[in-house]
Nucleic acid binder design. Structure first.
Length: 617
RNA sequence: GCCCAUGUAGCUCAGGGGUAGAGCACUUCCUUGGUAAGGAAGAGGUCACCGGUUCAAUCCCGGUCAUGGGCUCCA
């Protein structure tokens, strides 16, 4: 959010220089400060810093003041070239161990890159004989540059947040403090960015979820464990209804499996060897250890294997919207986006190897159907491959990994959907393809995950009889196009800002009688809507009568705040003519229309799952 | 889990060492009103929890729990 489409080189340089300016200011306030890295970002910059004690949020003001003072004095950014060994000696003398570490990496490896994601290309040129330093006031930094000539050229900036950040992104390393700042060429752009961040908060699913009574959390229940309220369950029900329809078209069959399971199964599945840290402690039942299931796959494998299978019946596609429990760090829990128990839109496809590519492709096309339906345009696939040098983290069968990856790449290519590759992020049992989408608030999320599993075959002895009556191994595709219902609903809340399309709206229509004498007609309208047989995922049109004693204007306001798509105002004129006065939540008054005309309109919007007018992002 | 911040009525928030305040919501009464807030009255809080300092703590200090922004991790 609030980042330019194509930041020009000036703004990039200015932001980077602002990071140095901040570091110089901090060095004035904390002479013992040690510095990590400080790049520019999409809308500003950050710098990772370590000071005795810690920087507190109230210090941000002081730092900003000092920065403004340095800017006023037009402190310069002076470049110098220096031999790498001299550079190391100088940084040691300045007591900057993190810079020394970076310099040593440069010297030994020619790069400081951790991974593509974390690469800080500001640090140095490819030349390993010498590096460049930039001096700003007393602050000397290892930096490739370029920089502004002096701080007077820095435009508008603001320090916005203080966070912890592990040195080089590794939680085993010490944690530095990261100060984020915004920096723009004009005051208008800076103000606009701040305004956009405030607007984003308005559509945060936690806020909207509260306002619309979709879900809640309770300390006595436990963190990360949502309580779904009736309005929220309607959205889940509609989503599941949609998934059942779409999956029926693709030949899925539904199964149901238990929440707890004996440990033997999880040893066999590989979860206890490879996934134990994400699982909750076992419970003792009659002398056996039982675990809450973190995934549904082992159970589906047992269902596949409960009787001999013939090549004639493959692929077998078993779907379950099963609840799984996973341990998540307390600090990473976040509303419905990250919970400790969630319902997966799960299924496993058991097929022959020669069917795997087409099945995987079909799964990707199912994703595309969903994304078209929800008008999700900003997505790409992330192909997570194993780090082939560290196969101990995974199940160590290199040929099978390669075969599985070939299948996936072929399917991805054939799909034509955009994808990126990432090494070292595969599931322990196979390579995976996550679908990444960006929420309206600007956060990117893995909304769906899909894997090709060649491990289950051996571990669970999953086979079928081929044409020659020989047992042959199946390939398993794990897929969850809607991810978890928790996260997907959270995404939809933010995507629509709570103004759901009619088919998803918890309340679709509210009837607003103007006076008590219109109640009879209001009930007639409601009965007509119920009786119209409009097929929703919850069985009937969701229509309420606002029978409170508020004035009509207040009732409209209430409905508006609840983002109810349609308000039907009924008074003397409507009752007499058999009409309803239709108002839409966007504020548009459609005027009086025949009740039957409104029902037709509603039926079309529900059955076609019509998108609403999308609010401004 | 780690760094920083926050926790006062159902919600949004103000206050502040001397047994608590607003708006909205809620209840009751009046109002029967034509497209985003009609009027009045009332009820509602161990100021997250546990300890400490103090004559006195909601306020200061420590701890715990929870929430938020990040880091790590992930659907």
């Amino acid at each position: 959010m609030c980042n330019e489409e194509q930041p020009d080189s000036f703004i990039h340089m200015m932001r980077h220089s602002t990071a140095h300016l901040m570091a110089a200011a901090i060095l004035k306030l904390w002479p013992e400060a040690r510095f990590g890295v400080g790049p520019s970002t999409d809308n500003g910059f950050f710098y990772d810093i370590e000071v005795p004690g810690n920087i507190k949020e109230e210090d941000l003001n002081r730092i900003e003041q000092k920065m403004r003072s340095l800017k006023k004095h037009k402190v310069t950014f002076e470049r110098s070239e220096i031999g790498i060994d001299d550079a190391i000696a100088q940084m040691e003398a300045l007591n900057q161990p993190y810079k020394v570490e970076l310099l040593n990496l440069l010297k030994d490896q020619g790069t400081t890159a951790i991974s593509k994601e974390l690469e800080d290309d500001n640090l140095a040129e490819g030349d390993l004989e010498s590096v460049s330093f930039y001096k700003t006031g007393d602050f000397v930094d290892l930096c490739r540059g370029p920089h502004l000539d002096h701080a007077g050229y820095i435009r508008h900036f603001k320090l916005i947040k203080l966070a912890g950040a592990y040195w080089r992104g590794n939680e085993k390393n010490p944690q530095l403090q990261r100060i984020y700042g915004l920096a723009f060429k004009t005051k208008d752009e800076l103000d606009k960015c701040i305004w956009e961040m405030e607007q984003a908060k308005l559509r945060d699913h936690r806020r909207v979820g509260k306002e619309m009574s979709l879900f809640t959390f309770n300390d006595d229940v436990g963190r990360g464990l949502p309580l779904w309220l009736p309005n929220g369950v309607i959205i889940r029900d509609e989503l599941e209804h949609l998934a059942r329809l779409e999956e029926a078209k693709d030949g899925y069959e539904r199964v149901v499996t238990p929440h707890i399971t004996k440990e033997d199964l999880f040893y066999r599945s590989g979860h206890l060897p490879f996934y134990k840290d994400d699982m909750y402690a076992p419970m003792d039942i009659d002398g056996d250890n039982y675990y809450l299931k973190p995934m549904n796959c082992p159970h589906h494998h047992m269902i596949y294997g409960h009787r001999p299978r013939s090549y004639k019946e493959l692929p077998v596609r078993l779907a379950e919207y099963g609840v799984v429990y996973r341990y998540e760090d307390s600090g990473s829990l976040s509303g419905l986006m990250r919970t400790r128990g969630f319902c997966q839109n799960d299924a496993h496809i058991y097929c022959r190897f020669d069917q795997a590519k087409d099945e995987f492709l079909r799964v990707m096309r199912l994703h595309a159907r969903y994304y078209d339906l929800f008008d999700i345009k900003d997505y790409h696939m992330l192909f997570a491959k194993p780090d082939m040098n560290k196969l101990d983290k995974y199940v160590d069968e290199p040929e099978k990994w390669r075969a599985a990856m070939d299948v996936i790449v072929q399917a991805m290519e054939e799909s034509g959907y955009p994808y990126r590759e990432e090494e070292g992020e595969a599931a322990f049992y196979g390579p995976k393809v996550d679908f990444m989408i960006k929420s309206a608030i600007g956060n990117q999320y893995a909304i769906s995950t899909n894997q090709l599993d060649f491990l289950a075959t051996d571990r669970f002895n999953l086979t079928y009889k081929n044409e020659d009556d020989v047992d042959s191994p199946v390939y398993v595709i794990h897929r969850a196009p809607l991810g978890s219902h928790e996260r997907f609903v959270a995404f939809l809340i933010e995507h629509f800002g709570g103004a759901f399309p009619v088919w998803l709206a918890p309340i679709q229509v509210v009837i607003i009688p103007i006076a008590d004498r219109h109640m009879d007609y209001a009930h007639k309208v409601q009965d007509a809507l119920f009786g119209a047989g409009i097929p929703t995922g919850t069985g009937t049109v969701r229509v309420k009568i606002d029978d409170g004693r508020d004035r009509m204007g207040k009732k409209i306001r209430n409905a508006q705040m609840q983002k109810i798509p349609y308000m039907l105002v009924v008074g003397d004129k409507e009752a007499e003519a058999g009409k309803v006065a239709v108002r839409q939540r966007a504020g548009e008054d459609l005027g009086a229309m025949d009740l039957s005309a409104f029902i037709d309109r509603l039926r079309i919007e529900v059955t076609t799952r019509k998108m609403p007018e999308m609010p401004e992002a």
